[in-house]
Simulated assay, not measured.
Amino acid sequence: MGKYQLDYKGMQQVERFHEKHSTVKSDKKARVQALLKQAKKKTGK
């Protein structure tokens, strides 16, 4: 096993950290595309 082993609480903190820092990039891309779709709808009317 590894040198550093985390208990349940530590694993939750690590998971939360990775979720927080990994989804920001994908959320920005999804948000930009959603805004572009809205802009196209507004200009198309």
Score class of each variant (00 low, 15 high):
M1I: 11
M1H: 05
M1P: 05
G2S: 10
G2Q: 15
G2V: 15
G2H: 13
G2F: 09
K3M: 02
K3R: 03
Y4M: 04
Y4Q: 02
Y4G: 04
Q5N: 07
Q5M: 06
Q5V: 09
L6F: 01
L6S: 07
L6D: 07
L6K: 05
D7V: 01
D7T: 02
D7E: 04
Y8M: 02
Y8R: 02
K9V: 07
G10H: 01
G10V: 00
G10I: 00
G10M: 00
G10W: 01
G10T: 00
M11T: 00
M11P: 00
M11N: 06
Q12W: 02
Q12G: 04
Q13V: 04
Q13Y: 00
Q13E: 00
Q13K: 06
V14D: 04
E15R: 06
E15S: 03
R16S: 13
R16Y: 14
F17Q: 07
H18I: 06
H18P: 14
H18T: 12
E19G: 05
E19I: 03
E19M: 02
K20Q: 14
K20I: 05
K20D: 10
K20Y: 15
K20C: 13
H21K: 13
T23A: 09
T23E: 10
T23K: 12
T23G: 04
T23M: 03
T23Q: 03
V24I: 12
V24T: 13
K25L: 11
S26Y: 08
S26T: 06
S26P: 01
D27Q: 14
D27V: 12
D27L: 15
D27K: 15
K28C: 13
K28V: 11
K29G: 08
R31C: 12
R31M: 14
R31E: 10
V32T: 15
V32Y: 14
V32E: 15
Q33L: 02
Q33T: 02
A34I: 03
A34H: 10
A34L: 03
L35Q: 05
L36S: 07
L36W: 02
K37D: 12
K37H: 07
K37E: 12
A39Q: 06
A39R: 08
A39G: 05
K40T: 06
K40S: 08
K40E: 13
K40D: 15
K40V: 10
K41N: 14
K41W: 12
K41H: 13
K41Q: 13
K41E: 15
K42L: 06
K42G: 15
K42T: 09
K42F: 08
K42M: 14
T43A: 14
T43H: 13
T43Y: 15
K45P: 03
